[in-house]
Amino acid sequence: MTAFLRNIKGDKAIWGVVALLALFSFLPVYSASSNLVYVVGTGTTMGHLVKHGLLLFLGFGIIYGIHRIPTHFFKGLSIIAMPVVLVLLIYTLAQGTTIDGANASRWIRLPLVGFTFQTSNLAAVVLMIYVARYLTKIKDRQISFKESILPLWVPVALVIALILPANFSTAAILFFMVLVLCFLGGYPLKYLFSMVAAGILALTLFVLTAKAAPDLFPNRVDTWISRVESFWDPADTEADYQIEKAKIAIASGGLVGNGAGKSVMKNFLPQSSSDFIYAIIIEEYGLIGGFALLFFYLLLLFRIVVVANSNQTIFGKLLVVGVGLPIVFQALINMAVAVELFPVTGQTLPLISSGGTSIWMTCLAIGIVLSASRNNGLPEKAREEMDESNPLEVLSGQL
């Protein structure tokens, strides 16, 4: 154990925050899983707890393994991974409509282990690394919009277009994060406005096409529209039902909460162990628990900014922001949905909600951030030697 701890490098505050969030997650997941057991009729509470523990154990294995990889290697790896995620996204859309009776347009089932895998989460991480690599490549020169279309915007458009039919919220968040990263990376602002306009136009055409030919994307566009409409004008819809139950849970929690495991609304609130787990946390631990959880996510954001600012390479800075910022942004959106500050999105609470893909991809991103924080202590000469020794840089430089 001592030897293992000696090999843990990187920002210790990030390690501590991630460990605390993971340990705390066992309490609300165990409590909220009773909804899956007694209402949905899936498994046992202990079974869900063990599964969550296994997912976190594998997640921390991912963090440990990834944080040992030198940061500059991710440049070349993003080139290799981009075609892979495009194939996975295409396969996910083409595989069918259901897995065990549920919509399967977001997941593929992993053979042997029995877990399902949400390919859009992996695609999001890979795309942010890819964009960071491209912005690093052009940092010292002026570019035209035309010459950036093929290497930058075509991959971005392909990934988002393949995610959009099944998961609008993830596609929208990913597009917004790409724009933020491009802005921070010095990409011309006038070109970004052009891409915003192009994105709005493409979304409008997609919605019109889906409405004109509803068999192409059954129920998806109607679901998006109903969620937005119920947010602005509450009606008797499923999204409104979820929000109402979430608000009841938050109101009953009060200042200090009802106590661990004593939530009542977990038995009535759909997705109480994933999308709406924050409402259950406030019901059981009160506003104090809710604000404490928010504080830790903001602390994670602060440390991500510190790591990015301390990194001596442009790629390191952009990489940390690109993969780290979406974690906190997703957490804030999940919380905003629970308190009705945002329409229902289906985004989980990172490291807290049950669900394998979300946990693993969050851990992958955290591992990358920690990898960058390890390099902050290296002298410039050592970093340059590492860059020159990376065989994948030859491939990424040519592309």
Rank of each mutant, 00 (worst) to 15 (best):
L5T: 15
R6S: 15
I8F: 15
I8Q: 12
K9C: 12
D11E: 06
G16C: 13
V18A: 11
A19S: 14
N35G: 11
G41E: 05
G41M: 07
T45S: 14
M46G: 14
M46E: 13
L54P: 09
L55Q: 15
L55A: 15
F57D: 10
H67Q: 15
S78Q: 03
I79Q: 13
I79E: 14
I80T: 09
V84M: 11
L88D: 06
I90C: 09
A94D: 11
G96C: 04
T97H: 13
G101W: 07
G101S: 01
A102Q: 11
R106K: 07
I108Y: 02
R109E: 11
G114F: 08
F117E: 01
Q118T: 04
A124D: 04
V125R: 02
M128G: 01
I129S: 04
Y134P: 05
K139S: 13
D140Q: 10
R141Q: 09
F145I: 03
S148I: 05
P155C: 03
L158D: 02
N167M: 00
F168M: 06
I173W: 04
F176E: 05
L181H: 01
L184P: 00
L189E: 09
S194F: 10
A202R: 02
L205H: 04
F206R: 04
T209S: 13
P218E: 06
N219G: 09
T223Y: 09
I225C: 05
E238N: 14
A239Q: 01
D240W: 08
E244A: 15
I248P: 07
I248H: 08
I250W: 06
G254A: 03
G254P: 06
A260L: 13
V264Y: 12
N267D: 14
F268Y: 15
I280P: 02
E283M: 07
E283D: 06
G286M: 07
I288D: 08
L294V: 06
F295Q: 09
F302N: 13
V305E: 10
N309D: 12
N311D: 07
Q312A: 11
I314G: 09
K317Q: 12
V323A: 02
V323Q: 00
P326I: 00
F329Q: 06
Q330S: 07
L341P: 02
V344W: 01
I352V: 15
S353P: 06
S353D: 01
G356E: 05
W360C: 08
V369Y: 03
N375E: 15
K381L: 13
A382M: 12
L399K: 07
L399H: 08
L399P: 04
